[in-house]
């Protein structure tokens, strides 16, 4: 009886899963594997090999990779600094990092748009210093910048989490046994934070790969990521079959990268970060 009650409580969540996760996936599979007349076909999936789609997929992979690397380079030392701080200060700094996430991310990106535009704040500052204006907005760099800005907390937090879990006694023991700072880092800190790094990579790489809003807003319609192609198929072209087909391909990429990370993340620590 107790068991039934417990499962009954899960009812709303199951309705949610069916209605908003399973059903959409079934619909995407249905559209993606059929043509305009409803006949079964693989054409929509294979259209990823169309030179234009291939180009934007590779471009998306490249930008997502650059974004992930930048996030990692920024986040790791930051997490180390954070970890070495006094506990009282630590929670304050974490709070500062999480604070922008309380604001809608679209608004934050729109704010960057105002800052970066031709007649925007940054170019006005340059002009007042007598420097020539530069076109910052509507370039792939602006898109990468926006992604890094948006997804950086997702990299910092899991790494910081994994780091704060390393007991000081372990490090003390290592130092006691004669290891220097560098050895401690490579022998202890890095191996013990690898799970945090991996989940950080997933949490940055996957949204960066599938993003289309940031490239719309900061790319000015000049940067075509695979997400933009899919959006266009749904919103402008009305070719839901092709859009779904490409979505399936993208999902395969996402699942593959997650599976790859999972097999390298044996202890599973840090995946359930926060």
């Amino acid at each position: 009886m107790f068991k039934l009650k417990k499962q009954f409580l899960a009812g709303p969540y199951i309705v949610w899963i069916i209605g908003f996760i399973l059903l959409p996936i079934v619909l995407i599979l249905f559209y993606g594997l059929s043509d305009y007349h409803g006949n079964f076909t693989f054409d929509n999936l294979l259209s990823i090999f169309d030179p234009i789609h291939m180009k934007s997929l590779l471009f998306s992979l490249r930008l997502a990779l650059i974004c992930t690397v930048i996030c990692l380079i920024l986040a790791y030392p930051l997490a180390m600094i954070l970890n070495s701080m006094h506990l009282k200060h630590q929670s304050f700094v974490v709070f500062v990092f999480v604070l922008p996430m309380w604001m809608n991310f679209m608004l934050r990106i729109l704010a960057w748009k105002l800052l970066l535009s031709n007649n925007g704040v940054i170019n006005n500052i340059l002009a007042s210093l007598g420097l020539p204006a530069i076109q910052l907005l509507n370039t792939p760099s602006a898109v990468v910048f926006g992604m890094v800005y948006d997804y950086l907390p997702f990299m910092i937090l899991p790494i910081y989490n994994a780091m704060s879990r390393i007991g000081h006694d372990i490090i003390d023991a290592a130092r006691d046994l004669g290891a220097n700072q560098v050895q401690v880092f490579f022998k202890i800190t890095m191996p013990l934070t690898i799970s945090g790094v991996l989940s950080g990579i997933i949490m940055v790489f996957v949204p960066a790969l599938t993003s289309f809003v940031i490239s719309n807003l900061l790319g000015g319609g000049k940067v075509l990521l695979i997400g933009n192609v899919i959006e266009q198929e749904f919103m402008q072209t009305m070719d839901w079959n092709l859009g779904s087909g490409l979505s399936i391909v993208l999902m395969i990429f996402v699942i593959a990268s997650m599976a790859f990370m999972n097999t390298h993340n044996k202890d599973g620590e840090g995946t359930a970060v926060w």
Partner: peptide, 22 residues
């Protein structure tokens, strides 16, 4: 023409022009 283009816009165009971005 693409290298000369600042952006491809629809709804934002008027506001961008008012702001003097193009």
């Amino acid at each position: 023409q693409k290298p000369l283009v600042y952006a491809y816009f629809v709804d934002e165009t008027a506001d961008e022009m008012i702001a003097g971005n193009a």
